[in-house]
């Protein structure tokens, strides 16, 4: 019964699935710009420092290559005697400092923005467990766990003989990147995450959102996002948390706000009903064990 209602809830999402897929691609060489303003800033920062490093690298390695080619004994080179040059030394101390300032400046700006979790319209509490995630929509009764999908789970067993390539959704390989129940989020909304863990440290990471944040037992870490494009965004736990660390993915399903409101409303209603049903058996006793079980399911 509960299962069917859950299906209708996910059916609501079907329309948006596939709008933007953030699976990693074979032979992918670089980070993706992601789907938020912050993730794009991070991407730009990444490209900036990458190119600066490439340029410095070309200069330094170029000079080395030239020297190796030009000043070799076999070509009759005779060693000079000098062993320092104050001007040069000052130049190559000062210029790197300037380059660093040029990098630090945008980095600082981005970081300050990322740290500002104020004025969020929705708060989601994320709790890491060995080895699944629990999501609570703060202020509602919606609260569920999300863990590795069954297909991946069967395939990933030692010498299962199953082919990881066969684990797909809509033609995209989702091996180890799919869950039984995704986290549904609205687009265009500032969402604040409060992140913690129940046993050991985990880390909640969806690359398309541009950051990861550790989940520390006993403490809350905060982060935020505002997703531009509807779509399915996949990530993984990014802090070693025991034997199944590699098997606790994260899937974010971003949908337009109206659709999200509908989904949240319905899911909340289900959860509230389940809670009521859970409270009831205390009075009505035995036969409703089934309802208790499905309430736990919905939890």
């Amino acid at each position: 019964m509960m299962a069917r209602r859950f299906l209708t809830a996910t059916a609501l999402l079907a329309g948006s699935a596939g709008a933007a897929l953030a699976n990693p691609k074979p032979w992918q060489l670089n980070m993706t710009p992601g789907v938020t303003e912050m993730s794009r800033q991070v991407y730009d920062l990444h490209m900036l420092i990458l190119w600066i490093c490439v340029v410095i690298g070309v200069l330094v390695f170029g000079a080395m290559a030239y020297a190796m080619f030009k000043f070799r004994k076999s070509k009759g080179a005779v060693a000079a005697r000098w062993s320092h040059n104050t001007t040069a030394e000052i130049v190559w101390t000062v210029i790197p400092v300037l380059i660093l300032v040029a990098m630090a400046w945008p980095a600082t700006k981005t970081l300050i923005e990322m740290a500002d979790t104020d004025d969020a319209e929705l708060t989601v509490k994320v709790t890491g467990y060995q080895w699944l995630w629990r999501y609570e929509y703060v202020g509602t009764d919606v609260n569920f766990v999300s863990k590795l999908d069954r297909d991946s789970d069967r395939t990933r067993m030692l010498r299962s003989g199953l082919d990881p390539a066969a684990v797909t959704v809509d033609g995209e390989n989702t091996y180890l990147l799919n869950v039984d129940r995704p986290l549904v989020l609205p687009t265009g909304t500032k969402i604040r995450f409060v992140i913690t863990a129940n046993d050991v440290i985990h880390s909640w990471w969806v690359p398309a959102l541009g950051w990861k944040q550790d989940a520390i037992p006993g403490f809350i870490n905060e982060a935020w996002t505002r997703i531009d494009t509807p779509g399915t965004y996949r990530g993984q736990c990014a802090e070693l948390c025991g034997k199944d660390h590699g098997f606790m993915p994260i899937v974010v399903e971003a949908v337009p706000p109206a659709q999200f409101a509908a989904w949240l409303g319905e899911t909340d209603a289900i959860a509230k009903a389940a809670r009521a049903a859970e409270a009831a058996p205390a009075v009505a006793a035995a036969p409703t064990a089934d309802a208790g079980a499905s309430a736990a399911d919905a939890q």
Binding site: N23, P24, K25, P26, W27, Q28, L29, N30, M31, R156, P164, A165, N173, T174, Y175, L176, L177, W205, P207, G235, Q236, C237, A238, L240, H245, G246, F247
Partner: peptide, 21 residues
């Protein structure tokens, strides 16, 4: 490349996309 494409460290198994590298 693997890291930039999103492969976490300390995992014994990974998605198909990370196979080639």
């Amino acid at each position: 490349f693997l890291g930039l494409a999103g492969m976490p460290r300390r995992i014994p198994d990974y998605n198909i996309a990370f196979s080639d590298f």
